[in-house]
Amino acid sequence: MKIAELKNNLKQGNLDNVYLITGKEQVFIKDIQKSFKDIMSSEEREMNFSNFDLEEVSLGDVINEAISAPFFGERRLVFAEHPYFLTGEKVKNVVDQNADLLLKYIKNPTPSTILVIFASYDKLDSRKKIVKELKKLAITVNAGKMEGPILAKTIKNDLENAGYQIENEALDLLINKTKGNYSLIINQLNKLKLYSLNTKKIDQKSVIELVPQSLEDNVFDLMTEILNKNIYKAEELYNQFLLQKIDPILLVAIIISQLRLLIQVKILSEKGLTEGTIAKNLKMNPYRVKYAYRQARTLNRQQLQIMYGDIVNLDYQIKSGQGDKELLFDLFIAKYA
């Protein structure tokens, strides 16, 4: 079910007993939580609303709350967050949960209770019985990331409703700098709207000046400086990372992922594939591919491939304890001098 449909149903009083909200987009999650809370008056909420963190509270307590009759009201609303047992990940220092309790409950939920489970994870483990049953018996709503064109359209609509316009290049850059995170985009738009209060037009220059570069962008700059043999500049950037206490292992991981995409885009564009087809082939956000496509133009594939081999080898040297990681990264930069 889509968020709009859910909100509409809640407004009209078409309520179900169990909801599963998947995805990590905070703006949507907060919006959904507000919509659920709005079905009760504030007095009713005080008595009949509870919010549980399943990393800290046992499922038994949640189910006990869910089977209790409402107090001075017609329904009870129960939120359950961080249901880590629905994923395949191993989580440390959490309460051991008996998923069978939830399984039993969703098969026969209390009619006067609305149980909303917020599974803010990238992926649920669909092999688990509890996940299969939840998807079958609960109303599932996706609060995940908006992809490519839908995201762009939503931002444009938001801005138009507020009486603003945004240049296409500025929009691309904004989406890239925020990695398509809608919550972040909304935060940045507040700033950009203030900055463009007179013109009501957001251009690329203002996005460059006001939206901070992500760690990935800064690492890309480092990688470009190394490839261009600007060793002093590269060392300066690297030292800034160290001052910010950024682990060289993280830098290596980001460079690997960036080089991978650049090489993939180079290979596929040499075969004559368009940006859209490449994004589809790689199952990747079209904006990321578009950006990489632009960056890859000026770079030499042979050079990128050599660097890929070097950086994977550096990862091995660090992880097998062949030397101090900060020094090993330094030597990696020096190799390109």
């Binding site: 991981a253 690997i256 991978r260 890929y308 081999g309 994977v312 990862d315 091995y316 992880k319 097998s320």
Partner: peptide, 20 residues
């Protein structure tokens, strides 16, 4: 395989092999 045993990313290792 030695690299993999040292926790280097599996995908990166296979891609590195492709290039070699």
């Amino acid at each position: 395989e030695q690299m993999w045993k040292s926790n280097v990313s599996f995908q990166a290792i296979l891609e590195d092999l492709s290039l070699k």
